[in-house]
């Protein structure tokens, strides 16, 4: 057993030597530019709603809805994955990427039907996001209640 572990470690070192590393600088640059631009699109709509008399907090929801719409639409017409190839995290992390993670599996598994294909696969990634997000927010709320309440 000990010999196996040693052999595995030796092999890991060889394999690592030949593993091409991601072009970090290029990836980071793309992520920065695309991520920044997507946020600027959000800023454009935010400013629009604020100009019409909403507070920035109130404007948050319609901006989110619009960004989700754009992310879903670009996924549907097959552009979002092309953006993602270059942008990496730049197109994953914005809420448009959240929309992409909903539409892409739903579309892909349409052949498996509208219940177990589309509707259940929609939440492949969105499900865990909502579970952990809402879960954390409940804990935050409870802590707040017991500390300040």
């Amino acid at each position: 057993m000990e010999k196996d572990i040693k052999k595995q470690q030796e092999y890991k070192d060889i394999a690592q030597k030949y593993e091409p590393k991601p072009t970090l600088l290029k990836n980071v640059l793309w992520a920065f530019v695309v991520g920044g631009l997507i946020c600027d699109v959000g800023q454009f709509f935010l400013n629009l709603f604020v100009k019409r008399g909403m507070t920035p907090e109130q404007a948050g929801t319609p901006v989110a809805i619009i960004m989700v719409f754009l992310g879903s639409f670009l996924t549907g017409i097959g552009i979002y994955d092309d953006i993602g190839r270059f942008a990496g995290a730049g197109s994953v992390v914005p809420i448009t990427g959240f929309a992409n993670s909903i539409v892409s599996p739903a579309m892909e598994f349409k052949r498996e039907g509208f219940v177990f294909g589309v509707a259940s696969r929609m939440f492949n990634i969105a499900g865990p996001v909502i579970v952990y997000g809402v879960g954390t927010s409940i804990i935050v709320g409870l802590i707040y209640y017991f500390l300040k309440g």
């Binding site: 979002y80 092309d82 197109s91």
Partner: peptide, 12 residues
């Protein structure tokens, strides 16, 4: 991944 998901494929 689903085809339309925006992911980067590693060089390996």
């Amino acid at each position: 991944f689903p085809l339309e998901q925006g992911v980067q494929r590693p060089f390996t």
